[in-house]
């Protein structure tokens, strides 16, 4: 009897944990966009991510069917020199936001798998800690746009 209770309790806990891991993180997105560049040049994706939940979320990566590789980068200008640094993970506190904008944080989108033009949309999956993901549609905007 007790054994059965323990087993079912363990099962419940496990099921709960699985459900939690699978739950989509409470994150909202503003202005998801990709700045178009010609040919096979790497492009940058921008957006504002907001943590609308009551727990911190950590962005750990990104992927897209349209690109062979997507990385999280940050541009830095130091002593007039500009360079890029890889951002392995990015924590967003409850109520906080992560601003991906020109000249700062951006998704670096490499090796297009299909032709893209300004006006197209492209799906990008953002990966959060705990194996949780969210996919959003990004608009491809002209090179000279903001």
């Amino acid at each position: 009897m007790i054994r059965r209770a323990v087993v079912s309790l363990a099962f419940l806990v496990l099921a709960g944990m699985t459900a939690m891991a699978g739950a989509a993180p409470a994150v909202s997105i503003d202005r998801p966009r990709v700045r178009w560049l010609p040919g096979q040049l790497p492009m940058a994706g921008y957006m504002v991510l907001r943590n609308t939940g009551d727990q911190a979320v950590t962005l750990v990566g990104a992927a897209s069917d349209a690109f062979a590789r997507v990385m999280i980068h940050r541009s830095e200008i130091k002593d007039g020199q500009s360079r890029m640094v890889h951002v392995p993970e990015l924590e967003i506190q409850p109520g906080g936001k992560a601003v991906f904008q020109p000249g700062g944080l951006h998704l670096m989108l490499m090796q297009r798998k299909r032709d893209l033009r300004p006006g197209d949309t492209v799906d990008i999956e953002l990966k959060f800690e705990g194996g949780r993901t969210r996919t959003w549609s990004f608009k491809v905007v002209p090179a000279g746009g903001e």
């Binding site: 560049l37 040049l41 980068h73 020109p102």
Partner: peptide, 17 residues
Amino acid sequence: YTRCPDVCPTTLARFKR
């Protein structure tokens, strides 16, 4: 350089504006 996805396009877009 053209393989610069963020700073160069940001600068060029700024001067286009």
